[in-house]
Design a protein around this nucleic acid. Structure first.
Length: 495
RNA sequence: GGUCUCGUGGCCGAGUGGCUAGGCACUGGUCUGCAAAACCACGUACAGCGGUUCGAAUCCGCUCGAGACCUCCA
């Protein structure tokens, strides 16, 4: 089997993944700024790295996954002169900033839970690491890579590049071009160069979030928290840093500059960026007003939706594309995913009921055995190839086909042999639940359903078809269907 | 304006030189009291034009179209 490869934004090609410390992986993902509800576009990014986290664990790596909560320093609007996002929302809603933070952190956790995300190993917050950030600012000033101006401190990009830095490398930008193209903004006179970015901002008296520092009352710059928290928990150099494509520049570029400036070493070995979710071909974003909130999807209340879609349907929908492609959001596409997901889900339920039955008269069907085995290795190969979940899911459908064939007695388990049968059932469950993180969304209603099905079969034996149809209709109203198999009666989610 | 990405059958979406991606929808078949489900069968699609090559959706050029980043955004 081929080794694990990821597309590294730094080199712009797929690279073999070799962790810095064998058997261990350190992974940092930029979390949300908790001033607002997370929308579906945000969810896609976190999903990408949830899959990566799950997959690395499935490959027996010991993974430390750090995903931060940004609760200060992220400014509204252009440049470094905007209002703090949290502070602005706090004023609007007449709340303490930390109430805003708590409210939207809760929302974030709730949403991710609905989508069945694993918790990261550490979820640090920016306000919890002010000391580290102030220390980092001091070091950068000492090294001559940052300067104070009116109580604010800025990172000196020209100096950084003079001393061997490579600002612009990650996003493929040339410093000179950036300098020429930078728009002149009001209030940038504090900076030596318009490109310089704030690592500490002086706060005006009315600013509600501020802390004491050697440079007066203020608050940390947005980019600095990620540098400090990743270094604290993962070390000066770590394996994987992830985030949305739109953070590449300037956020991640600034992180590299800060990290390299502080330690003299490039902080990250593999940069991974997930692509945008689009609506009618346009990026989903809050500012464009075309973003969907998760609950709007779950209830079908968004004007562009004509029905509700469950969290797992949406999770599955997103996994049907590769994370580096844009993914377009539409009713038709979601409906297709809903049906496909339910087929797979029914397969999971069914597979847990199947038992191997030895039968000496059955010959091994080599062709089917080969197809099952290649589906299983194909699943790993797909994920090894830069987390290609779309191709991985295709393998799952091949496995599903055989599970269904056994279920309806079209295929005898002995034709596969016990070992292959166990691999089929075991891996299907592993892939579906553990690695792709999909799950049953409805509670266990087995007892009720069994009673109904007994009744159904009694009526059927007595040829009371009016009652038979009535029970079917009842099931259908509740999103289920009755399946009359040759040797038994069963139910399934209506696809 | 600068940098970059993309354009695949009715819909979504993999795929970077030759080998059936997959899903949904459609159609036919098997099964069934009728259905549903399941399984089987079924679509020669790669924006356009030109070039390289024995061979291109895949490489190169041009044209058209869409989008992203350059300013907060996952």
């Amino acid at each position: 089997m081929k080794d694990l490869h990821f597309y590294n934004t730094l080199s712009r090609k797929k690279e073999k993944f070799i962790p810095i410390n064998e058997g261990h992986v350190g992974m940092y993902v930029c979390g949300p700024t908790v001033y607002n509800n997370v929308h579906l576009g945000n969810v896609r990014t976190f999903l990408t790295f949830d899959i990566l986290f799950r997959y690395l664990k499935a490959l027996n790596y010991k993974v430390r996954y750090v995903r931060n909560i940004t609760d200060v320093g992220h400014l509204v609007g252009d440049g470094d002169e905007g209002e703090d996002k949290i502070g602005k929302m706090a004023k609007l809603e007449q709340l303490e900033p930390m109430e805003v933070v708590q409210r939207y952190t809760n929302d974030f956790h709730h949403v991710l839970e609905q989508f069945n995300f694993l918790s990261p190993s550490i979820e640090p917050s920016a306000t919890g690491h002010l000391i580290e950030q102030i220390e980092a600012v001091k070091v950068l000033i000492e090294k001559g890579l940052a300067y104070e101006s009116n109580g604010s401190v800025y990172f000196d990009i020209e100096k950084y590049n003079e001393e061997g830095g490579n600002y612009g490398h990650l996003s493929g930008r040339i410093l000179e071009d950036l300098l020429n193209e930078t728009r002149e903004l009001d209030g940038q006179s504090e900076k030596r160069n318009p490109l310089d970015f704030a690592i500490w901002k002086s706060a005006s008296p009315e600013h509600i979030m501020q802390w004491p520092s050697p440079w007066g009352m203020g608050f940390p710059g947005w980019h600095l928290e990620c540098t400090c928290m990743s270094a604290k928990y993962l070390g000066d150099q770590f394996d994987i840093h992830g985030g949305g494509m739109d953070l590449k520049f300037p956020h991640h570029e600034c992180e590299i500059a800060q990290g390299t400036g502080l330690t003299g070493k490039e902080p990250v070995k593999y940069w991974m960026h997930s692509n945008m979710l689009t609506v009618n071909g346009q990026k989903m974003s809050k500012s464009l007003g075309n973003s969907f909130l998760p609950h709007e999807l779950f209830t079908g209340s968004h004007p562009l939706l004509d029905q509700a879609y469950s969290p797992m349907t949406v999770r599955f929908f997103m996994l049907q594309s590769q994370y580096r492609s844009t993914l377009d959001f539409s009713n038709e596409a979601l409906k297709g995913s809903q049906k496909a997901f339910k087929r797979l889900l029914n397969g999971l339920r069914v597979s847990s009921t199947l038992k191997y039955k030895a039968d000496e008269t059955q010959a091994i069907d080599e062709k089917k055995v080969a197809e099952i085995e290649s589906a299983i290795t194909g699943f790993y190969e797909a994920l090894n190839d830069d987390l290609n979940t779309a191709v991985a899911i295709a393998q799952l459908f091949t496995m599903l086909k055989y599970i269904n064939m056994i279920y309806v007695n079209q295929l005898h388990t002995s034709a596969l042999g016990e070992e292959v049968f166990d691999k089929l059932i075991g891996n299907y469950k592993l892939f579906f639940e553990e690695i792709l993180g999909l799950k049953e969304e409805n509670g266990d209603q087995t007892a009720v359903l069994d009673g109904m099905l007994n009744l159904y079969s009694e009526f059927k034996e007595n040829r009371r078809y009016d009652k038979v149809d009535e029970i079917r209709a009842y099931f259908k109203e509740n999103g289920m269907v009755i399946k009359d198999l040759k040797h038994r009666i069963d139910w399934a989610w209506e696809e």
